[in-house]
């Protein structure tokens, strides 16, 4: 119990620091890939601090409430995960958070925000099956949905869940909002939807959105880590190395692709889920 409380508190305090730092690293590496010097690594923190000082304005009475709920439930998602709770509970809470974000964008009735919200929904439709299949994969391999139990596994899940791992990495591009699937909003300035989903968010609300993404990214990388646990210290090392590799891979993908049409996002993710995910599940059935 004490361990759980420590893990949750550590997540609440450390996740934004790690997440913000990773975001800074992302910008630095991206800049180098593009032959620029790039901002300081701590730039994301400066950005958010600046947002907090902006004038408090909003477009209606409810939008910021929904974003707050998004923020809260993203944190709750991560807390469940690091407390070792049920993976499905974790994923369903994340869905709840995402729905709050989408409804926030819809609530403004702003053209850009709404198109962004529709695209965000489409992205959910694209990645959700693979996310659920990933949870089922862990369950079939370790016999439990509980993250705490999965952590105790003495066999590394990765070799048995390799198809699912690849599928999960694929949809991670959508979750990280990276090109080619950064349809609903993007951290690049070159998009046709203004800021997409977040067009009408400003000041503290926008800061909350940024911080929520840091929390979310740390949790998602935690999912990647879960593929490599085997109860030994070197399993942890492989896990952390692989998390960093994955993050680098996503940055590389981001910089190597132009944005694609939404049809590509949904077609490819579903094909990946059906081929890699389902085949992997069937194979697990024979293994267990």
């Amino acid at each position: 119990m004490v361990k759980v409380i420590i893990a949750v508190i550590a997540y609440i305090i450390l996740a934004p620091i790690v997440g913000g730092f990773l975001a800074g690293l992302d910008r630095k590496i991206t800049a180098r890939m593009q032959g620029r010097v790039g901002p300081p690594v701590l730039q994301p923190f400066y950005d958010v601090l600046k947002l907090l000082e902006k004038e408090s304005i909003t477009v209606n009475r409810v939008q910021d409430f929904y974003v707050m709920c998004f923020f809260i439930f993203v944190i709750v998602t991560g807390c469940f995960f690091f407390a070792g709770e049920n993976l499905l509970l974790v994923m369903f809470t994340l869905t709840l958070a995402s729905v709050f974000l989408i409804v926030a964008a819809f609530s403004s009735n702003s053209p850009y925000a709404e198109v962004g919200a529709e695209r965000e929904l489409l992205q959910m439709l694209a990645y959700e099956p693979m996310v659920l299949i990933t949870c089922v994969g862990f369950y079939m391999f370790t016999g439990s949905f509980e993250v705490g139990q999965i952590m105790l596994s003495t066999k590394m899940p990765f070799p048995y869940l390799i198809g699912i791992f690849l599928g999960f990495i694929f949809i991670l591009t959508i979750k990280f909002r990276k090109s080619p699937f950064d349809l609903s909003m993007s951290h690049h300035a070159h998009q046709e939807l203004v800021a997409g989903l977040k067009t009408e968010f400003s000041g503290k609300t926008l800061a909350m959105l940024e911080a929520a993404h840091w929390y979310e990214n740390v949790f998602l990388l935690g999912m990647v880590f879960l593929f490599f646990v085997n109860g030994t210290w070197w399993g942890y090392v492989i896990g952390i190395v692989d998390v960093l590799l994955t993050y680098f891979l996503e940055i590389l993908i981001d910089n190597s692709f132009a944005r694609m049409k939404w049809q590509v996002a949904i077609n490819s993710s579903w094909i990946v889920a059906v081929v890699l995910g389902t085949v992997n599940l069937f194979m697990l059935m024979f293994v267990r």
């Binding site: 004038e55 408090s56 909003t58 209606n60 009475r61 409810v62 910021d64 707050m68 702003s110």
Partner: peptide, 15 residues
């Protein structure tokens, strides 16, 4: 918290 805000309400961005 639903529907309560102290913030100034401003018009939408419409391009």
């Amino acid at each position: 918290f639903f529907g309560k805000t102290n913030k100034k309400i401003v018009p939408l961005y419409m391009a």
